[in-house]
Computed example of a mutant assay.
Amino acid sequence: MNTELWIAYLLATTLILVIPGPTIILVISQAVAHGRRSVIPLAAGVVCGDLAAMTGSLLGLGAIMSASATLFMICKWIGALYLFYLGITLWRPAPKGCEDPATATPAPTHSLFRRSFVVTALNPKSIAFFVAFLPQFVDRHLPMLPQLLLLGGSFLVLALLNALLYALFASQLREFITQPPVRRWFERCGGTALIGAGIFTAGMQRTS
């Protein structure tokens, strides 16, 4: 694969990843709510979700979704409703005696992983990226599989680094917020952002 083309792909992908979408909003809100211990499972869920979306796209799921309004609507609404659910969860008041985050029961690692995986894998925008954007950087005159592995692997590495940096920043922010009422305010801001991301996802239109 042409080196200049690969570098252009890395730069374009980095710009796309840095712009916060539903996945990054989820990562930030969960990292603020659960602290540094949430960084690894959240980032791992993002990478596995992107891998699932990428695999499905390369196997033809993206093309099917582009052609089927019903399938697109199903994936869109599952993702949107899950974002609504997570946002409402952050808005719910903490049980009595658990207002102090230091004594609250932390979310299980598998739960954090599942949340970021589901939101990432079911995001129609992610599938559209692998269907419409990635193939533009494939040289038709060269073997396709090595190029897809390079482009896909590069995307996953960048997605991992992006999720880790956002999660680390949010978890560090949590460490500086010592007052429980202030932490609750940040969590509710995150919940509001997730609900907003759900509304945005629900309003997505199928590309023709």
Results as ranks from 00 to 15, higher is better:
1 M>C: 02
4 E>N: 11
4 E>H: 10
6 W>V: 01
10 L>S: 04
10 L>F: 01
12 A>Y: 10
15 L>D: 06
15 L>T: 05
15 L>K: 10
16 I>P: 13
19 I>N: 07
21 G>W: 14
23 T>I: 15
24 I>A: 12
25 I>H: 07
28 I>C: 06
28 I>H: 02
29 S>Y: 05
30 Q>I: 01
32 V>F: 14
32 V>N: 04
36 R>C: 06
36 R>G: 14
37 R>C: 00
40 I>C: 05
46 V>M: 01
46 V>T: 05
47 V>A: 09
50 D>S: 12
51 L>A: 14
52 A>H: 01
53 A>R: 11
54 M>A: 15
55 T>R: 11
57 S>E: 09
57 S>C: 12
59 L>Q: 13
60 G>M: 11
64 I>T: 10
65 M>V: 13
66 S>Q: 15
66 S>R: 14
66 S>I: 12
66 S>V: 12
67 A>S: 13
69 A>F: 11
70 T>Q: 11
73 M>Y: 10
77 W>A: 04
77 W>G: 03
82 Y>G: 06
84 F>S: 01
85 Y>P: 03
86 L>N: 09
86 L>H: 08
87 G>M: 00
87 G>W: 00
90 L>V: 04
91 W>L: 09
92 R>D: 00
92 R>P: 02
92 R>Q: 10
94 A>D: 10
94 A>N: 06
95 P>M: 05
97 G>Y: 03
97 G>C: 01
98 C>H: 14
99 E>A: 15
99 E>H: 09
101 P>Q: 01
102 A>G: 01
103 T>D: 04
107 A>N: 05
108 P>G: 10
109 T>M: 12
110 H>L: 12
112 L>T: 07
113 F>M: 08
113 F>K: 02
113 F>A: 06
117 F>P: 03
118 V>Q: 11
118 V>W: 14
118 V>Y: 09
119 V>C: 02
119 V>T: 03
123 N>C: 08
123 N>V: 08
124 P>H: 10
126 S>A: 15
128 A>L: 10
132 A>C: 01
135 P>L: 05
135 P>W: 06
136 Q>L: 06
137 F>G: 06
138 V>E: 13
140 R>S: 14
141 H>L: 08
141 H>T: 15
144 M>N: 08
145 L>K: 00
148 L>H: 00
150 L>P: 03
152 G>Y: 09
154 S>Q: 07
156 L>Y: 06
161 L>I: 13
163 A>S: 13
163 A>G: 03
167 A>N: 08
168 L>V: 15
173 L>E: 02
173 L>F: 15
174 R>N: 09
177 I>A: 13
180 P>E: 02
180 P>C: 05
182 V>T: 09
183 R>A: 03
186 F>T: 02
187 E>F: 08
188 R>N: 04
190 G>V: 04
190 G>H: 07
191 G>T: 05
191 G>M: 02
191 G>Y: 02
193 A>D: 06
198 G>S: 08
201 T>Y: 05
201 T>R: 03
202 A>N: 06
206 R>N: 13
